[in-house]
Simulated scan of single mutants.
Amino acid sequence: MHSALVIGTGLMGTSVALALRARGVSVHLRDVDSTAVRTAAALGAGDPHDPAEAVDLAVVAVPPPLVGRVLAEAQAAGTARHYTDVASVKAEPRHDALALGCDTSCYIGGHPMAGASRSGPLTARADLFEGRTWALTPTADTDTETLNMALRLVALCGAVPVVMEASAHDRAVALVSHAPHVVASLVAMRLENAGERSVSLAGPGLRDLTRVAEADPRLWIGILSANALAVADLLEELGADLDQMIEGLRSIATTDEAKRRAGAETVERMLRKGQRGRGRISGKHGNQPEHFEVVTVTIGDQPGELARLFNDVDKAGVNIEDLRIEHATGRPTGLVHLSVAAGLAAQLSEALQPLGWRRH
């Protein structure tokens, strides 16, 4: 791939552009929001002007309801030799493309399983897709050359391709992304009118559970609208599970010993099923779950402290496999939980202590 046009310079589009630019691809940028284009260009994502001739690949990075129309317009103008998108649902954009008479032989749907709670070009990163799964959903007549071009895009972005059928993709993301987002938002809703003292007790568990609720609701109404039935079906199943859990908890609260035991068995059984389900989620960057040890250190709120910690960890010769930051409510300190390979926690702790880091 020598040239590309990215249509839509939000988080996903700008991240694609940055990744391609980092690997020597000539990238052009287009967006109805001129400010977003200028911002993406200033970040080094590409040329804010349309290409003078057809590019190798056009990447449509707009909300799902707009993909069909934008694709049709780009094809009518002869913008590229091949086309793909990065929308989080696949069946509806494909249906729209067919209805608008798009040439689906040179088009393949795509969805990188990566993102952030904040949108816009300023949140974009060239390494956003490193090691992440990237679903590709070819049509019945997608040309082999177009599939190969999409695979090249995925490779240049450092992602792992998975080819699947569009409707199967939509059912899968309803399970692993869309329904969980709704559940996180419903839990976060309970906090809106809660007392200040209650909210002050929030810990890392609640923060992790509700993190995705920070995302822009305007973006998510487009995503959920395009996959509404699959998400509704899953939430209905979840509702039945909630009813069962509620019944079990109410039984535990009774004075009838037999009901208490039965309720406890129900609750424990469901918690264990949840534990087993959680264990099926892949570990870092799509690999199988690994056992890591965690070193937790206290960090101040001064600028540059996190960078200093990373530098000191690097000096210790230990690789950070994952990390989580827990901010202390109402205090100028926080906790950084560093996940390292098994057997390295003691080595890292000993290296950090003389440098002034306090292990929690």
Rank of each mutant, 00 (worst) to 15 (best):
P64V: 14
N319F: 09
S105R: 14
I281Y: 06
G195Y: 00
P138D: 00
A262N: 08
L11A: 02
A114N: 00
D31L: 10
P303N: 02
G195Q: 07
A150V: 11
G101N: 09
V182C: 08
R308T: 12
S105N: 05
R358N: 06
P289F: 05
I299P: 08
A159D: 02
L122N: 02
V182M: 04
R207T: 09
T333A: 14
V27T: 05
L238C: 00
D31S: 14
S105T: 15
H2W: 00
E192H: 08
T104D: 12
D301I: 01
A124R: 02
A74E: 10
E290S: 14
A22P: 01
E350D: 15
G109Y: 09
P332R: 06
Q353E: 14
S282L: 11
Q288A: 10
R359E: 15
A240N: 13
A345L: 09
L209N: 03
S185E: 00
A230P: 01
G68N: 07
S117E: 12
R118H: 02
E165A: 13
P354F: 03
R152Q: 12
T254C: 02
D301M: 07
R269I: 01
A77P: 08
L242T: 06
R21D: 02
A316D: 06
A172I: 05
A155P: 04
A124W: 00
T35M: 00
G279F: 03
K90L: 13
H337R: 15
D47W: 10
P289A: 11
W220F: 04
A230M: 00
L306C: 04
A328I: 06
L306A: 12
T296R: 11
I281H: 09
L238Y: 14
G10I: 04
Q302R: 11
H111Y: 02
G330W: 06
D31Q: 12
K284D: 11
L43Q: 00
F310M: 15
I108P: 04
F129R: 05
R197A: 13
L20I: 09
G205D: 12
V187E: 05
A150P: 14
G101P: 08
M164N: 03
V297D: 07
D314W: 02
A74K: 05
V336S: 07
H327G: 01
T296L: 04
V267G: 05
Q353K: 15
C102M: 11
P93Y: 12
L122Y: 00
G304Q: 07
L156W: 01
L201G: 04
G317W: 08
T104I: 14
R207V: 07
T9Y: 03
E92R: 15
G205P: 03
H291F: 07
G120Q: 01
T142Y: 07
E236V: 02
M245V: 15
V16Q: 08
L122E: 10
D233I: 00
V295E: 10
V336A: 14
D141T: 13
M245T: 11
E53D: 13
P289L: 08
P303Y: 05
L238R: 11
L338P: 12
A80W: 13
D233V: 10
M245H: 06
E293G: 04
E268A: 11
L309Q: 11
I108T: 15
L352A: 06
